[in-house]
Amino acid sequence: MALSMDGLKARQLAEFSVPAASVGVAAGLVAGGLAAFVGRPIGEALLTGLGLAIPLALFGAGYAVLLALGKIPAGVFAPAAVYWVIGFPLSLLVHSVVTEWTVAGTPGLPAEPLKFLAFRALLSMGFAIGFIWMHEQLGRHWWPRILEHNPYSLRVVKQYVELADSLAERKAATDRHRTKKRRERTA
């Protein structure tokens, strides 16, 4: 029973993480797709893309899980920046190892691995802005769909409840105002 509960939770968390993982997959697959487009062997293009897509998608999903569990607030930049300062350089390290593997035949670390990581950690800030931006764009369409059976989705959407409320209120107020004016005009 406990096992199936855990299984259910994991499935719900995975479902909640779809938008976050998609950002990573998109980043990697665009890279792989373009490699195929410019005429690289399919296998090489696929590996290059996956080498980046998988780690970014996994880290993306990790971020979403923290969000779902309420460990970090929704839509706020600072926690995302801290998260990706670790996740982004590590993802690119994996990508570098995989690329080395496809080119040289054996996996290998980049020269000066610490400098490699530090540089990417600095750039991660930019990635974090883009990530949180796209994540929210995709999530806005995805979470409301799974709201009914996914408590994590419900919890996050509730964080936006104040905003959603004002949406409804504003719409109602505007409509009331317009109907009133229309009535006045026709009268």
Partner: peptide
């Protein structure tokens, strides 16, 4: 723009 920012960072 989100895509652009993610892409150029990568």
């Amino acid at each position: 723009i989100g895509f652009l920012v993610v892409g150029t960072s990568i």
